[in-house]
């Protein structure tokens, strides 16, 4: 059963998780664990959270997926990994559009922070556009949006650089009459 996490100073935010909560750090490498755990522990609680009401049931909704896996269509410009190799605190802040018909043969993944072979073998492990197409055929969802999107999740030390990509993706979704957006960080 979900809820809005408490803003009590005693609430642990998964460190450790309460009964019924997922452990957010279970699979993390030790240094990454320490980095994220401390950023969360000592970070400021965001209480002004944006919200849009759901206007249609899922079986009437157009759904678009956003991934941080550095995905692009195979014939599109790949995300820039070479600059990051030279400057490890830099991440490519651009974005890519992916087709509704994307599959393992037509996608490229360029991301230095995850093992991309899994998604290249089976896109549904983190970018379930093929599965959404199946759910559309079964009338479980309204339709698969014409476009889906990816950024490169590691943005280094300056998150402001990714903001224009976020705005552009949101505008593209509005233009496509997307009802529901599903974001899947990797």
């Amino acid at each position: 059963m979900g809820n809005v996490p408490s803003n009590s100073p005693d609430y642990a935010w998964g460190d450790p998780p309460n009964p019924g909560e997922c452990d957010p750090y279970l699979f993390l490498e030790e240094a990454i664990h320490k980095l994220i755990r401390n950023n969360v522990k000592y970070g400021t609680l965001v209480s002004d959270i944006p919200w849009s009401n759901v206007k249609k049931p899922v079986n009437e909704s157009s759904i678009s997926v956003v991934s941080t896996a550095g995905l692009s269509m195979a014939d599109d410009e790949p995300f820039d990994m070479e600059t990051e190799r030279k400057r490890p605190t830099w991440g490519d802040p651009s974005w890519r559009r992916l087709d509704r018909d994307v599959n393992e043969d037509s996608v490229a993944a360029n991301h230095l922070h995850i093992e991309t072979s899994y998604l290249l073998d089976d896109l549904d492990v983190c970018f379930p556009v093929p599965l959404l197409r199946q759910l559309q055929r079964e009338n479980v969802i309204g339709n698969v949006a014409p476009s889906h999107y990816s950024i490169m999740g590691f943005q280094g030390s300056d998150l402001r650089r990714i903001a224009p990509s976020c705005v552009a993706i949101a505008e593209a979704m509005v233009n496509d009459d997307v009802d529901l957006a599903l974001l899947v960080p990797v």
Partner: peptide, 14 residues
């Protein structure tokens, strides 16, 4: 909607 393993980011991202 965000499907996320590191859900604790919620505190600092909203």
């Amino acid at each position: 909607m965000v499907l996320n393993s590191i859900w604790s980011f919620q505190k600092i991202s909203g």
